[in-house]
Design a protein around this nucleic acid. Sequence first.
DNA 1: AGAAATATGTGACATTTATCACAAAATAAG
DNA 2: CTTATTTTGTGATAAATGTCACATATTTCT
Lengths: 225, 225
Amino acid sequence: MKNECADCACVLRSSVNMKDCQLEMLGGSHVVVKFKKGDSIIKQGVFSTNVTFLRKGMAKIHISGPSREQIVKLVKAPTYLGLPTTFGDKINQYSVTSVIDSEVCFIDLEVFKRLLGENKDFGSYILMELCKSEMEAYRRCASRTQKQMRGNLADVLLEFSENLFEADQFILPLSQSDIGNWVDTGRESINRTLSEFIQDGIIEMQGRQIKIIDKKMLKMISQNG
Amino acid sequence: MKNECADCACVLRSSVNMKDCQLEMLGGSHVVVKFKKGDSIIKQGVFSTNVTFLRKGMAKIHISGPSREQIVKLVKAPTYLGLPTTFGDKINQYSVTSVIDSEVCFIDLEVFKRLLGENKDFGSYILMELCKSEMEAYRRCASRTQKQMRGNLADVLLEFSENLFEADQFILPLSQSDIGNWVDTGRESINRTLSEFIQDGIIEMQGRQIKIIDKKMLKMISQNG
DNA sequence: AGAAATATGTGACATTTATCACAAAATAAG
DNA sequence: CTTATTTTGTGATAAATGTCACATATTTCT
């Protein structure tokens, strides 16, 4: 396989000054693996000694809660997967599953750590990422629990449209019951609320193809709760 | 004021190898401030250039959600406060308020950053802390949203008993409405559920003095949800 | 100490969401 | 291409919790 690590790393190059020898070090210790839609990339409870980087595609991060599986967030490439689970413990604390065909780069943990120590920029980049995602987690949790259905579903649709696909039209990569697991409700409620949105002319839907018609209204719903 | 930084830092010494010169650097750039119960230590939305370390006491971390204030977690000394908010952005992303009389050490951000770069142990210690608290946030959020009242309140009581005070008897540092803001419900529900627990002989209560009688039952309630 | 503000206890009632049940459709598997 | 499995659509009902309304304590402030 061609060494695609420079590509991988170029994502970081914009913000991080990475020396060629460090790139080589990365290049020498990585494996790229393809995952199909629905394949498990990281499994909660399993021992792991790799840092995982999502090169292409999209994945859901989920954790098994007291009664059901909870989707914590959806991420798109390029991004590291499971940094917190990698550093805190050798045992994965959550699962990651691809939701569309994806490519993942597995990097040896020791090499990664050495890099962190050697390259100050890289270290603070990772630190920042962790901080951002922790803050994000707090905000989302507060949002989820305080808003009700319509607000939460609006958030999900906006998240797809604005962050994940950056388009007003997209194909939902999740089933309705997954969305339910994301916003803490049953699939039935999701289904009903989607129907309401269609009725109200906020979105159009055919199968999993979704088109956002009235984004302003969606934002209103997201805000007022 | 006597330079108490060696004390402060000794917390880290167990896990981190900190050189004396580095300790001195810290010592030269810190200010210790006392806070009374209820005082605001960090205010969401305010500009900040300090790293904040809780030397003594206990504090609540809270964030303003869409409709009300959400308590994210309670922490006790010794611990850093607001690392994620300090690094991600110069503007505080959440608030921290002392819930009992406390002492806080303000450290210059630049000095802290230099230290991070110089001392690899320290850097990875901080990294780990961030990872742990992110994982904790995920777990808690899933728990909160999936359990109902009794389960959540049981969790809160156990958190006080096992982690914060490490005793079966303690004085609640939060009002019932604060607890409501913590577990996403109104003060009325908290009140009623506390009464139930008393009725069931699980706890005793006089004013804010709480005594846990049947911890086993409390854990049962916490688990089954 | 006395007044004002904040916190607690408790009932009645409305609302939201969870749950169950079952049919129809769409996808995946052989 | 046909069968099995997973998803989606929709009604009826139950259960949990949010909300409002007051009374009573308790704390804080001057």
